[in-house]
Design a protein around this nucleic acid. Structure first.
Lengths: 337, 337
DNA sequence: CTGTTAGCGCATTCAT
DNA sequence: ATGAATGCGCTAACAG
């Protein structure tokens, strides 16, 4: 139950001037006499006046709001990116509204509806592990609302993208394992429809190839990010006749879960089996043994994505460019390898 | 650069009826002939029509949006609460916009301005460690916008609050340490202006009193959540003539940081010094040694806060009740104690 | 520099 | 059951 709200009419009436002048003073329009300007600003301050963005947005047909859809908040990965997005957006006067899809395609579709209904000026999205149909995203293109992908991108859509070089990150990680003498390197891979999964897998494969190691299919297990399953798969790997001597996991939570299983089996890390993760979670430095992992420049990712989006916001649709920015990952070697 | 947007006028024109009828059909008004209703709904679907919430909000003077301000995203604490808030809000048709204050009072004030400007219908907030002045929050009360505090509350403001029983959580944690034979229990405490800090400190003190243990001031160190300082304080504690034999930390990140220092000093946990944290971060089960901690029902906290807020949204301001809900924490005993 | 007018997209009277 | 008219709070031409 709201109360009466102070409007420009109130302050116009009080000052005996037209609301246009008030509006001008408030928006910083140059052609307002200094005397009136200060009077207006003072009264606004005194009355605790707040501009009604709803009305302003309705006029301008833009909300100064950026939508962000991410798959999860379980890890620190997306929160870190989000903070950067928020800050970058704020610097340009944009608000951010966030939805999380919970890795559910259905929820993601609903989220896009929310964004549309709220008339976001643009959208930054990282798709779910389930998303294979992109109709809900193409709507934004059709409506002329700029879209930017981060991390989990849709290659076939011609919009700006910001990603980390997953291939190189994976390649480096596996190369590092090889250089420490490992020869049977398992890979707990991600869902096959995600490009990050495929790129990391390719990095893994190419590293093996470069060093003339055999590619052993039974050591490559894609899974759906359901951490419960990591136990099963890791056990399975450890019970193979020829046990792997290293494990490259699609991400840190997976690696951490695998490490628990390995420790429960009384195997030594990294002596019996080395482990490398991906994404450098906060906790990865603190677990036992501390986890070797591939760090991604998340803050930069958020900044670049937001900048790419805002750039489009200020250009005509005909000038939009679908540039893909690829950021460099960094291998952080700790005690698990 | 937006393109043309489908409006009710478009579909009214197409169907040769008035936009009033279209509006009625779309809002589910009963008095619309079934034939027209279906025709309208079908065309809307076909045209990919999206209601313009801006315009609707402007009419209703409500946005169906709930604002949330939290101090940080570094830990999984607030993200977990947020997810619950989002879901609960969505069930009642509310959107959520989130700001993070980054533990800065100044940013928090800015955040509240953003919320006001965006005309949120209500606000859920957890204050920063710096917030000692509450004028920016009282504005909401004056404007008749309902407010709900979670976790980090302002006792002197008469609005609904949802908290965990920090006192009891701390008491249990310290009692547990005492029962395992510890006698010199240090406490890395939180900022003194936060009620959670004071409550946890009191739980700590009362547990010592109950078991007739002396309260030793030099073992109680309040700090400002700047993790860098944990190293210094922990080192200091370990170098005391009479070293503490246990440490109760204000939260898990603090405990984890302290554990690193303790391990670096080659002291055994929990034999030489036991450690207990607070809040049960995801990673706390995985670190070495796994961390004993006080778990909080975060999901329930988010749900209750959202429900409390929505309840107020539907009542007249005169009926608002400032109920404080206190949720029970749970001690999770692991290997660090 | 300033006031007047129109309209953003919609819900909601008031008529019919 | 439906249409016409009004206004939410504000900006943006348009005149002076």
């Amino acid at each position: 139950m709201k109360q009466h709200q102070i409007t420009i009419n109130d302050i116009a009436r009080e000052l005996n001037i037209s609301k246009s002048t008030v509006s001008r003073a408030l928006t910083g329009h140059p052609k307002v006499s200094p005397a009136k300007r200060t009077a207006i600003l003072e009264l606004a301050e005194k009355l605790d006046y707040q501009r009604n963005m709803l009305a302003i947005s309705l006029c301008n047909n833009r909300t100064n709001t950026i939508g962000v859809i991410v798959p999860e908040f379980r890890t620190s990965f997306f929160p870190k990116i989000l903070v950067a997005i928020q800050e970058t957006a704020a610097q340009s006067g944009y608000n951010v509204i966030v939805c999380q899809s919970g890795e559910s395609y259905e929820t993601e579709v609903k989220n896009t509806k929310v964004m549309l209904t709220n008339h976001v000026d643009g959208l930054i999205i990282s798709i779910t592990k389930e998303t294979k149909n992109y109709e809900h995203l193409k709507i934004f293109q059709r409506k002329g609302i700029p879209l930017v992908f981060i991390n989990r991108i849709v290659n076939e859509m011609a919009v700006p993208k910001v990603v980390v070089d997953d291939y190189e990150g994976a390649f480096r990680a596996v190369e590092h394992l090889i250089q420490t003498g490992k020869k049977r390197i398992a890979h707990l891979a991600g869902p096959e429809n995600l490009l990050i999964s495929r790129n990391r897998l390719n990095g893994y494969l190419d590293a093996l190839r470069k060093y003339n190691l055999p590619i052993i299919q039974e050591l490559i297990i894609p899974y759906d990010f359901n951490l419960e399953k990591v136990k099963i798969y890791t056990k399975h790997l450890l019970e193979l006749k020829e046990r792997p001597d290293a494990l490259f996991a699609i991400n840190d939570p997976t690696a951490v879960e695998a490490i628990q299983v390995i420790k429960a089996k009384k195997l030594k890390i990294p002596k019996d089996i080395a482990v490398v993760g991906f994404s450098n979670e906060y906790s990865s430095a603190y677990i036992d043994p501390s986890l070797t992992t591939v760090a991604q420049p998340l803050e930069e990712m958020g900044i670049r994505a937001t900048q790419a989006l805002i750039e489009q916001l200020n250009k005509d649709i005909s000038e939009w460019k679908a540039v893909t920015q690829v950021l460099k990952p960094e291998l952080i070697i700790r005690k698990s390898s």
